[in-house]
C-alpha cells in the first residue's frame, strides 16, 4: 500500500493501491455464486428469505380462515361452546375437542413439570458429578428425537396394556372421585396425558436446565455463605431465580402438548363427548382433524374442521408467544 506514489490526487492513489492487491486481476476467475450475487445480492436474498419465513404464519391463517369461512359464517362464536358434532345433520360444535385438548395438555403439564424441574436440578446443580449429569441430560433430550408415531405405537402396544391395571385400581379404589368414576378399558384421557407428559418432558427439562445453568455461581454461594444447605439453596434461592425460565419451559411444553397429534390420536380413544372422568376416552382438536380430514367432502364439514384448526392455531400461537416472552424477556431481568 504505502509505497512511494506522489499523492497528487485521491483517485491516483486509489489506483496504485489497488494494483498491489490482486483482487482486481482475479475478478474474471471469481466463483460462480460470487459473480451472481455479490454482497448486495446476498443481502437481498437473505432479506427475501426472512420475509417469506415471517409471512408464513399470516399466510397459514389466511388460508385456514378462507376454508373455515362457511363454518365461521354459519356458527359464529357459539361454535366454541356447542357440544354436538353431527356430520349427517351438519351441526358442528367444538367444545368436546377443545375440552379434550385442554384436559390432556393440562394432565401432561401437571405430570411433566415436577419431573422436568427435578431433572433440570439434578443435571445442573452441584448434586451429582458432571460425568453423571451430562449423560442424563443428553438422554432426556434424546426423547425429543423419537418420532411421534413411534411413541404412539409404543403407547398402544406397550404402555396402555401396562398401565391399565393401574387405571382399574384408580377406578376400584377412587371411583367415588368424579375424575375416576368410569370403567377404564385402555385408551383414555389419562393415558393420552401421560404419553404427552413423556413427550414434553425434554422441552421442560432442557429449558429449565438452561435457566439453572444461567444463574451465577455467586448467587448460590451467597446462600451457602449464610450457612444454608444445598436443598435450602436450591428451593429458596436458585429456583426463584430460575422461575421465569421454568415457567417459560412449562408454557412451551404446554404449547407442544396442545398441538401434538399422532401419538395422542393413537391412545386417546377418539370418542367425542365431555366426560370429567380421566379414565374415559376422549378426543382432541388434532385428533379429530387427523381422523376426519380425509373423509370430509361437504364444505361445511371441511369448514368446521378448519375452524377447529384456526382455534387451535390461535391457542398455540398465544401459548408459544407467551413462552418465548417469558424465556427471552423475563429471564433477562432476573
Amino acid at each position: 500500500m504505502g509505497f512511494a506514489v506522489a499523492p497528487s490526487t485521491e483517485s491516483s492513489s486509489l489506483l496504485t493501491s489497488s494494483s498491489t492487491d490482486d483482487s482486481l486481476e482475479n475478478a474474471g476467475k471469481l466463483p460462480f455464486l460470487r459473480t451472481l450475487l455479490g454482497d448486495g445480492g446476498f443481502k437481498s436474498l437473505t432479506f427475501v428469505a426472512a420475509l417469506i419465513a415471517g409471512a408464513v404464519p399470516f399466510f397459514v391463517v389466511a388460508l385456514i380462515s378462507r376454508d373455515a369461512w362457511p363454518a365461521i359464517a354459519k356458527f359464529g362464536l357459539p361454535f366454541l361452546w356447542e357440544q354436538d358434532w353431527n356430520i349427517d345433520e351438519s351441526i358442528y360444535g367444538a367444545l368436546p375437542y377443545l375440552f379434550g385438548s385442554l384436559v390432556s395438555a393440562f394432565i401432561a403439564l401437571v405430570l411433566a413439570l415436577p419431573i422436568g424441574v427435578a431433572i433440570a436440578i439434578v443435571t445442573s446443580e452441584r448434586v451429582l458429578p458432571p460425568w453423571v449429569q451430562i449423560p442424563i441430560a443428553f438422554l432426556v433430550e434424546l426423547i425429543a428425537a423419537i418420532p411421534s408415531v413411534i411413541i404412539g405405537l409404543w403407547g398402544v402396544f406397550v404402555f396402555t396394556p401396562a398401565i391399565n391395571p393401574f387405571q382399574e385400581f384408580l377406578y376400584a379404589r377412587f371411583g367415588w372421585l368424579p375424575i375416576f368414576n368410569t370403567q377404564p378399558f385402555g385408551s383414555s384421557m389419562l393415558v393420552a396425558g401421560i404419553i404427552l407428559a413423556i413427550m414434553i418432558l425434554p422441552t421442560i427439562a432442557a429449558i429449565s436446565r438452561e435457566a439453572f445453568l444461567a444463574i451465577s455461581a455467586d448467587l448460590r454461594n451467597g446462600a451457602f455463605a449464610l450457612g444454608a444447605t444445598q436443598w435450602e439453596t436450591i428451593i429458596f434461592v436458585t429456583m426463584p431465580a430460575a422461575i421465569s425460565g421454568i415457567l417459560g419451559g412449562a408454557t412451551l411444553g404446554l404449547g407442544r402438548a396442545l398441538g401434538e397429534t399422532m401419538a395422542v390420536t393413537m391412545v386417546i380413544g377418539n370418542v367425542a363427548g365431555i366426560d370429567f372422568s380421566l379414565l374415559s376416552p376422549g378426543s382432541t382438536i388434532p385428533s379429530i382433524l387427523a381422523n376426519q380430514f380425509s373423509e370430509a367432502l361437504d364444505p361445511l364439514h371441511i369448514g368446521a374442521l378448519m375452524y377447529l384448526a384456526l382455534v387451535l392455531f390461535l391457542i398455540t400461537l398465544g401459548v408459544n408467544s407467551l413462552a418465548i416472552f417469558m424465556i427471552r424477556f423475563l429471564s433477562r431481568n432476573a
Partner: peptide, 24 residues
C-alpha cells in the same frame, strides 16, 4: 460471612433477603 463482587440479592423481598439466613 461473605460479600461478593457483584451484589447477589436473592429473588425475594428485602425483608426476606435479610431474614433468610436467620430463618434457616
Amino acid at each position: 460471612g461473605m460479600i461478593f463482587q457483584h451484589p447477589n440479592p436473592f429473588a425475594m423481598s428485602i425483608y426476606d433477603n435479610v431474614a433468610y439466613g436467620i430463618r434457616t
